[in-house]
Amino acid sequence: MPASERSPYDVLGITPAATPPDVHAAYESALAAATGPAEREACTTAYLHLRNTSRRLGADILEFAAPDSATTAREAFAGVADEPFLAPDAPPPAIPALVVLRRGDTSGDHREPPPTKGTFAIPDRFTATADVLPPVDIPE
Score class of each variant (00 low, 15 high):
residue 57 L to N: 11
residue 21 P to C: 05
residue 134 P to G: 02
residue 131 D to H: 05
residue 11 V to S: 10
residue 122 I to R: 04
residue 58 G to S: 15
residue 72 T to I: 11
residue 136 V to I: 14
residue 2 P to E: 03
residue 65 A to D: 05
residue 27 Y to N: 01
residue 119 T to Q: 06
residue 116 T to A: 08
residue 107 S to L: 09
residue 99 V to Q: 09
residue 95 I to S: 06
residue 79 G to S: 05
residue 66 A to T: 11
residue 116 T to N: 00
residue 56 R to K: 12
residue 51 R to K: 15
residue 86 L to Y: 13
residue 125 R to A: 03
residue 115 P to H: 03
residue 50 L to G: 10
residue 120 F to P: 01
residue 29 S to W: 00
residue 25 A to D: 11
residue 107 S to T: 07
residue 61 I to S: 03
residue 128 A to H: 03
residue 42 A to E: 13
residue 47 Y to N: 11
residue 55 R to W: 04
residue 14 I to R: 13
residue 10 D to I: 02
residue 118 G to F: 02
residue 64 F to E: 02
residue 45 T to Q: 14
residue 17 A to Q: 07
residue 52 N to V: 14
residue 129 T to L: 10
residue 28 E to N: 01
residue 28 E to T: 11
residue 84 P to C: 02
residue 102 R to P: 01
residue 113 P to W: 01
residue 132 V to K: 12
residue 3 A to W: 02
residue 38 A to G: 10
residue 121 A to P: 03
residue 19 T to Y: 07
residue 52 N to A: 12
residue 91 P to H: 05
residue 51 R to M: 14
residue 77 F to C: 07
residue 8 P to N: 01
residue 48 L to T: 04
residue 127 T to V: 12
residue 38 A to K: 14
residue 87 A to S: 14
residue 86 L to P: 00
residue 97 A to N: 13
residue 22 D to Y: 01
residue 15 T to E: 15
residue 73 A to T: 15
residue 75 E to V: 14
residue 30 A to L: 03
residue 96 P to V: 06
residue 126 F to N: 03
residue 33 A to R: 08
residue 109 D to C: 00
residue 11 V to L: 09
residue 64 F to M: 01
residue 74 R to T: 11
residue 7 S to T: 12
residue 103 R to V: 04
residue 83 E to W: 04
residue 82 D to L: 13
